[in-house]
Computed example of a mutant assay.
Amino acid sequence: MHILIIEDEPKAGDYLQRGLRESGFKASLARNGRDGLHIAGEEEVDLVVLDVMLPRMNGWEVLAALRANVATARLPVLFLTARDEVQDRVKGLELGADDYLVKPFAFVELVARIRTLLRRAPVREDDLLRVGDMEIDVIARSVKRQGKAIALTAQEFNLLHLLARRQGQVLSRSLIASAVWDMNFDSDTNVIDAAIRRLRRKIDDPFDLKLIHTRRGMGYVCEAQAEPSA
């Protein structure tokens, strides 16, 4: 599970990130509200641990923006803040926070609350994904187009699954690299482009309707529509 920490105090942020990683989570850290909001919208995040007093955007503003965006509206958010007044807790919950923990805190309690929220979180993807005439069985890890089975390697399936579950969204090469390979590649690498080419040979080349499209200078998108004209 991927936890996003939005915390501007350096020692607190580093402590949270290290502790959550040692507890078995993937943990990302943003030092201000605007960067945190960007990460939440661009990466596959399962829960946000959010401070209130943040530079660039405060926690109230970040939460309101998350809830206003369809893609992040149901993302679990736990406020972790030194603001312990009753009105602050009420405000956070009314804005849509799922939990509110006051500093100082016991780390084991934080982890317990995070695990509880993750268990309650709704499933965010269907067992069967459809893009045009393509069907992806997530559980069986199988793919069909027009009823014809398409054999993919494990990595090819992971790449296609990422593109399909974010159908209609342009995904950058760096996001794809992080999500599929769990690595950060140099921006000039052709690893992602080569992987896309191999996937297209199986998914798109035998069929008239193309599903994987290039958005020059931006990345790749999976959708059932024709390539834009030049």
Rank of each mutant, 00 (worst) to 15 (best):
V170W: 02
L50M: 09
I3Y: 08
E44H: 07
K148Q: 15
K91I: 00
I212Y: 04
A106Y: 14
I114T: 05
E43T: 13
A179P: 07
G13T: 06
D186S: 08
R166A: 08
L54Q: 10
L129P: 00
F79W: 11
R215F: 08
V108E: 15
H213Y: 07
T116V: 12
R115C: 04
H38P: 00
W60T: 13
D46G: 13
E227H: 12
K11I: 15
Q17F: 02
D204V: 07
E7T: 05
E156N: 08
I136L: 14
A71W: 06
A27H: 00
D46H: 13
A224C: 11
R198A: 12
R113W: 08
N184Q: 15
Y220A: 10
R165W: 12
R215Y: 11
A194I: 12
D99W: 04
P122Y: 07
S178W: 11
I39P: 01
I150S: 00
A121V: 09
I6A: 03
L118I: 10
K11N: 13
L110P: 00
K148T: 14
I114D: 02
I150N: 09
Q17L: 14
I3N: 04
S174Q: 13
T116N: 10
M1D: 12
Y220H: 03
V70H: 15
I6D: 04
L54R: 06
A226V: 13
R113K: 09
Q17M: 10
